[in-house]
């Protein structure tokens, strides 16, 4: 474990909306307030929907946090939103991105920062109750193939080097892409198992499939996109084969997601990324969907 640093200010970016302020006020702010981390926390709340401005009076008073509200002029995707906050706030050394429905265990931030060093690109928390069923992080080095963007400490130098999140993802899998870029650019991706955050995401509670239609659509579309970026046409063919075998999506959503990817490909110059051979064990796809077994 790297040595303890004494850094005094932490910028936290949360991409949220005027309809999610309950989460911000009831979960996010109280959980940031109770952190044992001793430095100052500067929370930037960015309104990704940009349709109804978030006002100061919408947010609860906090004695411990410095809160800034950002209302961009147009709706932004997940990665775009964090890029926007980053360019505006200009954090130094590292910054934390977090979802508004996250509740941090009180030592969480302290633990994340304790793990940070200059060779590290990303540090993710361990999510409870649903741990990501991906490759487990290495028991001693804490290295992991990719880190979830729901609560992630990001190295500023690395973020600048790769130009931030790829905005073409809009939402979902941009965190996987950023993680792989981290490895490719010589930065580690770590999961600190002692940094725990509670994330009761709705995705596991699939009692009503239509609630997650949007999520399913973007996950599928970006599965094609990421497969193409890293493995070209061969990867795309494989992605298509895998998606065809997924039993719980109907044909329509699969073909719409694929069509949307083709439109994206036609209208943008997609930069393909070559995977160095020594990273093939880190950058790989087992199958579709981190939440279910491979088809």
């Amino acid at each position: 474990m790297p040595s303890k640093k004494n850094l005094k200010k932490l910028n936290v970016f949360c991409s949220t909306s005027s309809t999610r302020l309950n989460e911000v006020n009831n979960l996010l702010i109280p959980s940031l307030e109770k952190q044992t981390y001793e430095g100052e926390i500067h929370l930037s709340l960015l309104n990704y929907e940009a349709n109804e401005k978030i006002k100061e009076e919408d947010i609860i008073d906090s004695e411990k946090l410095h809160i800034r509200i950002i209302n961009p002029p147009k709706p932004l995707g997940f990665g775009e939103a964090h890029n926007y906050s980053f360019n505006l706030v200009k954090p130094s050394k590292y910054f934390l991105i977090i979802n508004s429905d996250i509740y941090l265990e009180r030592d969480c931030i302290k633990e994340m920062i304790r793990t940070f060093d200059e060779d590290t690109g990303l540090i993710e928390v361990r999510q409870l109750p649903f741990q990501h069923p991906k490759d487990e992080s290495h028991k001693e080095t804490f290295e992991t193939s990719w880190a979830s963007g729901c609560c992630l400490l990001i190295n500023v130098e690395f973020f600048k080097k790769v130009g931030g999140f790829d905005p073409l993802y809009w939402m979902y899998l941009e965190d996987v892409d950023l993680s792989w870029k981290s490895w490719i650019n010589g930065y580690k991706v770590l999961q600190n198992p002692k940094a725990v955050a509670y994330h009761f995401t709705g995705l596991y509670f699939r009692y009503s499939p239509n609630r997650y239609y949007l999520e399913d659509f973007w996950s599928l579309r970006n599965f094609f996109y990421i497969s193409y970026v890293y493995w070209g046409n061969k990867g795309l063919r494989r992605a298509k084969e895998i998606v065809e075998k997924i039993p719980y999506y109907d044909k329509e959503i699969k073909s719409e997601a694929y069509q949307n990817f083709l439109d994206l490909k036609e209208n943008n110059r997609i930069k393909k990324i070559r995977i160095p051979t020594n990273l093939e064990n880190k950058i790989h796809i087992h199958g579709y969907n981190k939440f279910s077994k491979n088809p």
Partner: peptide, 8 residues
């Protein structure tokens, strides 16, 4: 667009 459109 995410969950909402311009009419919120």
């Amino acid at each position: 667009h995410l969950n909402r459109n311009s009419k919120n």
